[in-house]
Amino acid sequence: MNIFRLCGDMTHLLSVVVLLLKIHTIKSCAGISLKTQELYALVFATRYLDIFTHHVSLYNTVMKIIFLGTSFTIVWYMRHHKVVRQTYDKEQDTFKHYMLIIPCFALALLIKTKFTPLEVLWTFSIYLEAVAIFPQLVLLQRTKNIDNLTGNYVFLLGAYRGLYLLNWIVRYFTEKGYRQWITWISGIVQTALYADFFYYYIKCWRNNEKLHLPS
């Protein structure tokens, strides 16, 4: 495991910590898309089906359990916690799940490496993760005052994807025969979705302004 992979995972973990901090400590999920969080829960649930059958390392197993547990915890908070659920911007978070789930599943049936249930679901999860941030980006654009925790949460998620790209470049040059086209192309698409957000995040940060996206 190279430094970029480790930093990527830690950034991903930190993004979850930031989001949980907002939800659990401040008791607010304002500006957070439940649609995106539900899609992430679905991503982890379909990708980590191999958790007990395909052991890579203790590190991987522990991280998988953390991501599964936290993603469902976040969804639970936003849907059921009596205080948190009242801060959810339901009217603004209008993106439809099926508009992302159905095309991703169709694509997973068409483009995958093996036609087995586990393999198709794993591929589906890769495609779905690439676009799962979409409802969140739409919601951010509609939000007038994006608070720091929400802005930082999305920034950390984007940074995690960028670091994974660097990790793949290192692996390509250091591991003989290493290639994974489905993951790479999905990863590039996923990182590209953050480009616009990054541009405004850095611009506002440099100007010492509160983060706002043009509508």
């Binding site: 991987n60 998988k64 991501f67 794993w122 290493y178 994974q180 993951t183």
Partner: peptide
């Protein structure tokens, strides 16, 4: 190595 074998990432 093919795509199916690389499942060591999260």
């Amino acid at each position: 190595t093919n795509d199916a074998d690389v499942k060591d990432e999260l």
